[in-house]
Nucleic acid binder design. Structure first.
Length: 135
DNA sequence: GTTCTAACA
DNA sequence: TGTTAGGA
């Protein structure tokens, strides 16, 4: 699979990735700190992202927008990994289905757990989100 | 001009 | 998360 090599080739600097993902450099660096992504480095300090990195950042972004926290995203990534390791073919479809299932599970788990929400950004309130689940 | 790390009126 | 300081 030569295509994988291409997708994993570190080519994109911060500025490009911020435009591609609509994320701030601060957010991207923070996600890296949390172990969600691990972009390559140039001379030892500047980050270089691959197209796969960008894809991953977009997934992370969508998950966070759906109400997951960092821990939730980690679990989603773990799920995706397990699926990839298990089913070597049809991974795309399998991953997506399982992810949707896990997403619901994680959301409910987090909401039941309590206020893990932060002060700053809060589009979704407890009531708005919990009504999608049967209690 | 860009990006990096660390830190917080 | 934003923003700023101080360097590379």
């Amino acid at each position: 699979m030569r295509d994988d090599i291409r997708r994993n080739m570190p080519l994109l600097p911060m500025r490009i990735v911020t435009k591609l993902t609509e994320l701030t450099p601060r957010q991207i660096r923070y996600y890296e700190q949390q172990g969600l992504v691990n972009p390559a480095r140039t001379d030892g300090r500047q980050r270089l992202f691959s197209f796969n990195d960008v894809d991953l950042l977009l997934k992370i972004k969508s998950w966070l927008e759906k109400g997951l926290n960092i821990a939730g995203v980690r679990q989603m990534l773990g799920e995706a990994q397990q699926v990839l390791e298990t089913k070597k073919d049809q991974t795309k479809k399998a991953t997506k289905e399982l992810s949707e299932r896990e997403l619901r599970k994680l959301l409910k788990r987090q909401l039941t757990a309590g206020p893990t929400r932060r002060v700053g950004e809060t589009h979704l309130t407890y009531g708005e989100l919990t009504r999608f689940f049967r209690h």
